[in-house]
Amino acid sequence: MAIRSRPISPKFLFLKAMVLFMFWVLLSASFEWIHLSLGLVFSFAVAWGNAGHSSFVPKFRLWSRILLYFPWLFYKIVQSSLHLSKLILHPALPIAPQLISVESKLNHHAAIVLLGNSITLTPGTVTAEVDRNKLIVHALDQPLSEGIKNKQIESKIAEIFKDQEPDL
């Protein structure tokens, strides 16, 4: 799979450097001018060194929608965590592990990355293999694998990426 990197604009370079610089200030927590200027130099150097924009990272204007997607994902995590702890604490251990193969209709690299990470982050389901838009998912029992098959997560992600040109 060839990874073509998009060229990066000066504005985006500046933004990337500022994010790195905020991380530097948070870690060093000192406001002497020598530390601040060293941080500025190094954050611009790192941002310039990584100037190609990987196609696995969503575009910058999508991030507000992705941030709105996280609370819903957290609700799903809580739901399936409670289900999973009930399964583990049950004396008979009523599990039925299975490998299921899912083909998604998403056609962006970044959307597939987001989908795989969401599935793995939800307890009870793990993405075991990714090949273009075919995913192999290991689920712990029947209701959890039903949750993957009815594509709730995928339709949410498709809504985020609805007005982007496909690049897969």
Partner: peptide
């Protein structure tokens, strides 16, 4: 509570794939 449940799961569950679910329970919630 969730950390203890995950530790019980790591002991009880039968193979690598199902144990990974228990570890991810700890990691997330």
């Amino acid at each position: 509570f969730f950390l203890i449940v995950a530790a019980i799961g790591v002991i009880r569950l039968p193979d690598v794939f199902s144990r990974s679910h228990a570890v991810s329970l700890t990691d997330s919630l």
